[in-house]
């Protein structure tokens, strides 16, 4: 981020440096001050609304704190963690979340790549494809989720009409999870495709042509040239989509509200707050989800070497 902006500044600095040193340091001071001033509001809000609550959340998670019984509030160390981590509901929600994340991100990667290639390759109708693929991205998730819910509700739905008489897929666990996956994939594939398309633009046509002359088939060119060049773009897209998929909430809340064992960790934590009004347990889940997300990010950045967007070497295409 800094690197691109440095070079034009250097000659000016050198020129100014030799005659008057005092003037330079004054200008430098003013620049620092302005920089800090400009960043202060953004930094303050971001830290105040996330930093403090997450610490507070940890503090709450060590207490018995149920709004239905406010008088029973008490400091209980890690009992809430024991309660959550020994709950089968929590583990079911965790596995549902992991499964949904892995399956939907995998499908999105494949479909997103196909869509990216399609948008990259076609000349006729490219605008229409691009415009219409932005609609799932922009559409309010809840709206899309209701669309899917009505489509699969017996009586109302056009899709459920295609199934066996009397089936109600949203009342059973496995069909519900499949529909949730469908809704997630539909909504986020275009975003994946756009990120991948930006990566595709980096693959030099000459290289592909040269490989074709040497007799490499289309599939070979894709695996040996396109994918390796796009690797950074793919990893960044995967990182953001994985973290986002892990937070899945809207679709599940609208489609099943987490019934029949379809809760994700976000849904179970939110239900705990809205319906249970149990802040101690809710905060414990908050902290655990935070840790899980941190682990995912760590694995991507340290193990796979995903360039964090905004860092000097990567994310910039």
């Amino acid at each position: 981020m800094t690197r691109t902006t440095e070079p034009p500044a250097t000659p000016a600095k050198q020129v100014a440096a030799s005659p008057r040193k005092a003037a330079l340091s004054e200008g430098k001071k003013a620049e620092r001050k302005l920089g800090l001033l400009l960043c202060a509001p953004a930094a303050l809000i971001m830290v105040a609304v996330t930093g403090w609550p997450i610490i507070y959340s940890f503090w709450l998670s060590l207490q018995r704190y149920d709004l239905k019984f406010p008088d029973d509030r008490e400091f209980i160390w890690f009992d809430n963690y024991v309660a959550v981590l020994s709950s089968p509901y929590w583990w079911n929600a965790m596995w549902v979340t992991v499964l949904l994340t892995v399956v939907s991100v995998a499908i999105e990667l494949v479909l997103g790549m196909a869509l990216a290639l399609l948008m990259h390759r076609t000349l006729v109708g490219r605008g229409i494809v691009r415009t219409s693929s932005l609609i799932p991205y922009g559409l309010v998730t809840v709206v899309a989720a209701f669309s899917w819910r009505f489509a699969w509700t017996p009586g109302t739905g056009y899709l459920v009409a295609l199934m066996e008489e009397g089936s109600a897929p949203l009342t059973e666990k496995v069909p519900s999870l499949l529909i949730i996956t469908l809704a997630e994939v539909w909504k986020t594939t275009p975003f994946m495709a756009l990120l991948l398309m930006a990566g595709l633009a980096l693959v030099p046509d000459d290289l592909l042509k040269a490989a074709a002359m040497d007799g490499a088939g289309g599939w070979q060119r894709f695996l040996k040239i396109t994918v390796p060049i796009m690797k950074p773009a793919i990893l960044v897209a995967l990182l953001f989509r994985t973290l986002d998929a892990f937070r899945v909430f809207d679709n599940i809340y609208v489609l099943t509200s987490g019934s029949n064992g379809t809760s994700s960790v976000s849904v179970i934590a939110a239900n705990n707050l809205i319906r249970g009004l149990n802040l101690g347990i809710g905060s414990t889940m908050s902290v655990l989800i935070f840790i899980a997300v941190a682990i995912i990010a760590f694995v991507f950045i340290k193990v796979f070497g995903t360039a964090a967007p905004g860092s000097d070497e990567g994310g910039r295409r």
């Binding site: 609304v49 996330t50 403090w52 609550p53 997450i54 507070y56 959340s57 709450l60 953001f240 973290l243 892990f246 937070r247 909430f249 960790v265 976000s266 934590a269 939110a270 707050l273 802040l279 809710g282 905060s283 889940m285 908050s286 902290v287 989800i289 935070f290 899980a292 997300v293 990010a297």
Partner: peptide
């Protein structure tokens, strides 16, 4: 950007 929003829900509710 990577922060799980759900983690803020309980503490923000209380705050």
């Amino acid at each position: 950007a990577m922060f799980p929003q759900i983690s803020l829900v309980s503490p923000l509710f209380d705050i």
